[in-house]
Nucleic acid binder design. Structure first.
Length: 854
RNA sequence: GCCCGGGUGGUGAAAUCGGUAGACACAAGGGACUUAAAAUCCCUCGCCUUCGGGCAUGCGGGUUCGAGUCCCGCCCCGGGCACCA
């Protein structure tokens, strides 16, 4: 055995062994317990970053841990291969997106393999392969037949130069991010999927996701946004038409003093044709952006429609306004306004001189004035005719019933969730499998898969598919749809396809029911809503198609924290900042190690500290994983990322910390290498004859107990701590003494297995070198020997009035009075209780004694 | 504004049921080995101290024999949502 730890050689040997033995090939085995562990697959952007390394290390630690517990583990990997960056790279470098993507996959695959992750590579998939996307095309055609996919006009951000739809985040100051052209709102035909049909089920099932972080469950609930309210119809003066509105506060209906409609509301459009002022206002509203920031700064404005609405209960006339804050996309695009009891209505009324009418007062007589702001609490109705004296809750039902009896309204449940618009005017995506027939009929494509032509030139102006008659024109005169799917479509079902990755006749086979649901899903919290909601929805679509039999795709979810690092900058003359990589900065600290400042190594001049931020290109504070692996080895990088912070917290990068992790593995190596012969020859037992051996054995088993607990709750940083404690303990043993050699052998056997999920290569090799067996993966999981934890005497902490005054050693079998007597006999304790009355003595068995004295 | 997290040494963090606050590391300081450096090993390491002890888990109260942990009120930081009627 080499005395020097050489991670490069160790890791190559371990990986070669796993490859040769097919160690991570997962095979269905109904006789055993299965465990499906999945990390969110990467977008093949070019190279792995530290966030990937952290994500996949967490997943791999869990997968290997479950494997060593004896479960049948599946841990697959693949590529989220469609997407916009490939098109941008194509424009910039003149390479087809497919080529760029596939070469990135090769690079990143090499990096993943170098990290030693236990993936079943036989199930690898890339979403840009027709063998993959043909099945989502097939499912989409089924959805069309079921009426769950439909085509409708939707308002989008349209870039008139690039001839494409832009996502909200691609619109900067009202202009296209690439073309710089003024973005227009445009209504175009888009394919949508009826996720709203599943809104209630998606909401209800959140309650069953016990293995998900509460934060993510709350975000999904908010996103679905269920509200209970009442739909009611106002009359329109001088017309027999009705204006439907939705409200969650029907109890305030008697306080309505105006009604507001969205600029896009048909009523507004109709009136605008005769009213130039109104038309101008409607146009102004349409120009307004849809982003959050714009909405926040937007002034609340309105314009009289020139029509009155007729109150459904009182029959009174109230004015109708067009208001820029009313959203066409929610409810009916029209609201009743109650300035007395809604803050937004209150402000609007203030501005336009509309009266306020108070109809709710507090039930307990506390202040409920509306002079300074709206009174928005629920309470008791007043000035509300037949409903006077009812509570808000009673009035909700009474008013809904009153309206329903007269056919003027009904209770209604509303969701914030919108149907999922899946069309993108993009090239590098899965073609939507639809044909626009020469007869004008739109029908599902029958010649699946509809293959995306890969040998194309992308110039950024519109989708190249539109310019490819060979793709779009069909022999019968029909036209293929040239839009592609939103890339969330591919990532919504990949977890299921891994189960049946080689299936070429169907989307999924019975193996999906063996593996699903995913037992542990690991990924970034940034996917808390979109990806995780779409995937849940897709799962239910597949269930209803008979493809899977469980209701939810992911039983447990772990959202890992960000990887962050120091940032350093210099201010430029124009106020902008130039960011310097922390690796190029020499940091100065004071005597206590507190950060004082830094200088740039290149020129010795100072740079300013910019705080600790998420690793990013823009702040130039990234660390390249490959360089680290090159220098320290994969085990060190894995160990560092596990040790520095618990998985869900952010991880602050520190070069010194990596050095510390490397140091620990070197110490482990020299502990094993320095005692290899003694350990191989050692016999178990005999620890009781040697105090030191006995103590060490107790410490090892105490650390083991802690580590098992922490593995179970996925707090891997303290698992590593426990392993470090074991090394510290075992290092003190003298292997020439048989009893101590025995404990060393037992301790190393425990330690290597605990560490194996985290640092798999070095533990694999040491396990073999020390003669424990051939394959640590199949060695079984260590168990605590409670006998080793037993002590002859226990150290009690003695407190006087809650303050620690002494520590006394008491025989383990001592009874309460003996413990109490020992505590009170202590010299230092006496000093504090002499001359005062002892009122009570509390004894916590095995732990402490608290003497309560006057 | 609303909803979640969080605030503990110079730093990352730990503390399972309310029971010794700071495990395990990093940094720093001192020492050994070395021609020297690296590596390695040993010691010190919350603050104050008259060396008895006192004070310390964002701030102020409370419950308790005992509070980082539970309750009430506040401050700060991070994340999410937000004209949703």
């Amino acid at each position: 055995m080499h005395t020097e730890y050489d991670p490069g050689a160790v890791e190559a040997a371990a990986q070669q062994y796993w490859n040769a033995n097919g160690s991570f090939r997962a095979v269905e085995d109904p006789s055993g317990e299965k465990f499906y562990c999945l990390s969110m697959f990467p977008y093949p952007s070019g190279r792995l970053h530290m966030g990937h390394v952290r994500n996949y290390t967490i997943g791999d630690v869990i997968a290997r841990y479950q494997r060593m517990l004896g479960k049948n583990v599946l841990q697959p990997i693949g590529w989220d291969a469609f997407g916009l960056p490939a098109e941008n790279a194509a424009i910039k470098h003149g390479i087809p997106p497919s080529q760029w993507t596939r070469s990135n996959i090769e690079t990143m695959k090499g990096q993943l393999k170098r990290l030693g992750f236990g993936y079943d590579w036989s199930r690898e998939l890339a979403t840009c392969d027709p063998d993959y996307y043909r099945w989502e095309q097939w499912l989409f055609t089924r959805l069309m037949q079921k009426g769950l996919a439909y085509r409708a006009k939707a308002t989008v951000n349209w870039d008139p130069v690039d001839q494409t739809v832009l996502a909200n985040e691609q619109v900067i100051d009202g202009r296209g991010w690439r073309s710089g052209a003024l973005v227009e709102k445009r209504d175009i035909e888009q394919w949508s999927v009826r996720i709203t049909d599943y809104a209630q089920e998606l909401l209800d099932a959140i309650d069953t996701l016990h293995g998900w972080p509460e934060q993510v469950r709350t975000m999904q609930r908010n996103w679905i946004g269920r509200s209970e309210g009442v739909y009611m119809e106002f009359g329109i003066a001088g017309s027999d038409q009705a204006l439907g509105i939705y409200t969650t506060r029907p109890d305030t209906v008697m306080g309505v003093t105006y009604v507001a409609v969205a600029a896009e509301h048909p009523l507004a459009s109709a009136r605008a044709e005769q009213d130039a002022d109104l038309a101008a206002f409607v146009e102004e509203c349409r120009q307004g952006g849809t982003t959050e920031a714009e909405l926040e700064t937007m002034e609340k404005k309105g314009h009289r429609l020139g029509l009155d609405a007729i109150h459904p209960i009182t029959g009174e006339s109230v004015p109708i306004f067009v208001a820029n804050f009313v959203l066409m996309g929610y409810g009916t695009g029209a609201v009743m306004a109650v300035p007395a009891h809604d803050q937004r209505d209150w402000e609007f009324a203030e501005r336009y001189g509309i009266p306020r009418k108070q109809v709710i007062v507090s039930a307990d007589g506390s202040d409920c004035g509306i002079a300074d702001c709206a009174y928005v609490e629920r309470g008791m109705l007043t000035d509300s005719g037949p409903f006077d004296g009812l509570t808000s809750e009673q009035a909700f039902d009474a008013i809904a019933d009153w309206l329903a009896e007269r056919g003027k309204g009904e209770k209604r449940v509303n969701f914030r969730l919108r149907d999922w618009g899946v069309s993108r005017q993009r090239y590098w995506g899965c073609p939507i499998p639809v044909v626009h027939g020469a007869d004008g009929e739109v029908r599902p494509a029958t010649d699946l898969p509809v293959r995306l032509p890969e040998d194309v030139v992308v110039d950024g102006s519109g989708s190249p598919l539109k310019k490819m008659p060979a793709f779009s024109e069909l022999p019968d005169g029909g036209q293929r749809e040239t839009d592609t799917f939103d890339t969330f479509f591919e990532s919504s079902w990949y977890y299921a396809r891994y189960c049946s990755a080689d299936c070429d006749g169907v989307m999924l086979d019975e193996r999906a029911d063996y593996w699903l649901p995913v037992d542990q899903y690991v990924g970034g919290v940034e996917h808390a809503v979109l990806h995780l909601l779409y995937a849940r929805f897709f799962h239910k679509l597949m269930r209803d198609e008979g493809l899977v039999d469980c209701d939810e795709p992911f039983a447990n979810l772990l959202t890992q924290g960000m990887v962050i690092a120091e940032t350093w900058y210099r201010e430029n003359a124009d106020g902008s900042r130039t960011w310097y990589n922390p690796a190029d900065v020499e940091v100065n600290r004071d005597d206590k190690g507190k950060l004082l400042g830094g200088v740039l190594r290149a020129d010795g001049e100072p740079v300013s500290f910019g705080g600790v931020e998420k690793m990013s290109k823009s702040k130039n504070n990234g660390v390249d994983p490959e360089a680290l692996i090159e220098r320290y080895g994969a085990d060190t990088v894995r160990l560092y990322t596990m040790f520095t912070a618990p998985p869900e917290q952010s991880l602050e990068w520190s070069d010194d910390g990596v050095e510390g992790a490397a140091r620990f593995l070197r110490r482990l190596w020299s502990l094993a290498a320095g005692n290899a012969e003694a350990v191989q020859a050692a016999e178990a037992g005999g620890a009781d004859t040697d105090e030191r051996a006995k103590d060490a054995r107790r410490e090892v088993h105490a650390a083991l107990k802690k580590a098992l607990f922490d593995f179970d709750r996925q707090q891997f940083n303290t698992v590593v701590s426990a392993c470090m404690t074991m090394v510290n303990t075992l290092q003190k043993l003298d292997a020439t003494k048989p009893a101590q050699a025995g404990v060393l052998r037992e301790g190393l056997g425990i330690l290597l297995r605990l560490l194996a999920p985290i640092a798999p290569h070095v533990t694999h090799l040491l396990w073999r070198e020390l003669g424990f067996g051939d394959d640590i993966l199949d060695a079984g999981w260590p168990e605590v020997d409670d006998g080793a934890l037993v002590q002859d005497s226990v150290q009690y902490v003695v407190q006087v009035n809650g303050k620690v005054r002494a520590k006394v050693s008491v025989s383990t079998d001592a009874d309460k009075s003996a413990i109490e007597a020992a505590a009170l006999a202590d010299e230092n304790v006496r000093r504090f209780i002499d001359g005062v009355e002892v009122r009570k003595v509390i004894v916590v068995p095995g732990k402490l004694v608290n003497v309560v004295a006057k």
